[in-house]
């Protein structure tokens, strides 16, 4: 079923290979300039009426961000993830808030957490969760959250960390594993 759809779409769009996670869940790479047309067609023709989520992955090694648009066809119980890649140096996505109003909120979050901009999306440049954040967007992988935490927040000394597995082993078998 998903395969049929893929084959059908493949004739008109530049799609990557289809990754089928389950029978009703698949992912496919999409060219950024075709994303909008594809989404519109999926929504209006193929019944993918629900935007499940829009999220991002920081592929720092490859120098790109991956945006995942997950759309769902409720009647057929199909979920399709569309992956779009953006250049990490100047990440600019296409806003789809006019297709799904909820997308605006996702886009605001991505703007704040990854620094991906979505020109035209409502209130996208306003702060979302963080207040007065001046540093690098914290979900980027080159943002070192531990270092940041240590440089920012006062600590109480004497903190110890135990690996639960080692700790319990030591506690239960002080003499070592039988």
């Amino acid at each position: 079923m998903m395969r049929d759809l893929y084959d059908h779409m493949k004739t008109r769009y530049r799609l990557g290979d289809l990754t089928e996670q389950r029978a009703n869940l698949a992912f496919v790479d999409v060219a950024q300039d075709e994303l909008r047309a594809l989404l519109v067609e999926l929504r209006d023709v193929h019944g993918f009426t629900h935007l499940v989520l829009l999220t991002a992955v920081d592929w720092i090694e490859e120098g790109r961000f991956q945006l995942t648009y997950m759309v769902n066809n409720r009647t057929a119980n199909l979920t399709l993830g569309l992956r779009v890649y953006l250049d990490r140096k100047s990440p600019v996505g296409n806003t789809i808030h006019d297709l799904w109003p909820t997308a605006a909120t996702y886009q605001r979050e991505l703007r704040e957490m990854f620094g991906i901009s979505f020109p035209g999306s409502p209130r996208v440049d306003e702060e979302f969760i963080l207040e007065g954040w001046t540093d690098m967007p914290p979900y980027r992988r080159d943002f070192d959250t531990l270092a940041y935490s240590q440089q920012t927040y006062a600590e109480r000394g004497g903190r110890e960390t135990h690996d639960p597995r080692d700790h319990m082993q030591k506690k239960l078998y002080p003499e070592g594993r039988p």
Partner: peptide, 10 residues
């Protein structure tokens, strides 16, 4: 939350 970027620790 000892290593969180936005949570105070003390």
């Amino acid at each position: 939350y000892w290593d969180s970027y936005n949570t105070i620790k003390k």
